[in-house]
Design a protein around this nucleic acid. Structure first.
Lengths: 142, 142
DNA sequence: CCTATTTCCCAGTATAATAGTATGTTGATA
DNA sequence: TATCAACATACTATTATACTGGGAAATAGG
């Protein structure tokens, strides 16, 4: 599946924060309400975003979270790699994976490398600012 | 991870069969030996390939498997979709997934559609024949 | 100082998928 | 008819996912 709820939710949270910046710190309760995601589960996601310095938290009354950078400086590829722990399409291309002893005779390795690169190129071509610009009303019929 | 061992092994099996065609039917034992994959596990993978009419099996002495089509007529994208049950990068784009009620306001849907398309374009651009042409000796040092 | 608020921290849990293994049955060939 | 190899069914260990729960620490307003 490549992308789990962690990565999907993280992007939605970041876009939500970007759209509601200017209102100071934004609480998880507000985001959870708007995005229809469990507040408790969001905690674990935002924790990662804090750890990678994409958002900043403030405790107490009037506290919440806000983006640490401008939306155009937050790359979607980076967010997804942080949340998913890498975006490699196959195990043997994961960082830290032991080098496959078959690599020198592997007929498929070049193909996987290309797929990895295609995913990287695409995801690195987007920032949170780009996601914000996505028009309402996709062509889904609901 | 997008691609599990099922998809990875399936491609290796198909390339192996393509490279050893002309020798009639090829046994799972031979493929398992060459590819260093458990023969028993390969059974479950080849079963899927038979079901989708990519390979043909013959029982008994002198039996085994062989490709049902020419290598250049077997698309890598199709193989992976068969084995993985789809290649969608996110759950909401999977076939048969219930339409997301947030689709019309979703800031990320367009992005996911594009990623899905990029993966489709790339994987559909390869056939088993292309994988065979991949030169020995990738630039890995082993 | 007190209290409400909100992040922060740690721990547990149900479900499902992955990557197999084990034990047989059926059918083709020599 | 013996052998070989595909075909079929069922089971299992491990891991990841997607959460839930209980509390501790910090901040602001009264």
């Amino acid at each position: 599946m490549l992308i789990s709820t962690k990565g999907r939710y993280a992007l939605r949270v970041l876009v939500d924060m970007a759209e509601h910046s200017g209102q100071g710190y934004i609480t998880l309760r507000d985001i959870a309400g708007r995005q229809d995601i469990s507040e408790k589960y969001l905690e674990s996601i935002v924790k990662e975003l804090v750890r990678h310095e994409l958002v900043t938290g403030l405790r107490g009354k009037g506290g919440g979270y806000r983006l640490s950078k401008a939306p155009e400086d937050i790359g979607v590829g980076d967010v997804l790699r942080f949340m998913e722990g890498g975006l490699a399409p196959v195990a043997c291309l994961e960082e830290g994976h032991k080098v496959c002893p078959r690599a020198s005779v592997c007929r498929t390795l070049t193909f996987w490398r290309g797929l990895d690169e295609a995913i990287r190129q695409y995801t690195d071509g987007y920032t949170i600012a780009d996601l914000m610009r996505t028009e309402d009303g996709n062509d889904y019929i609901i």
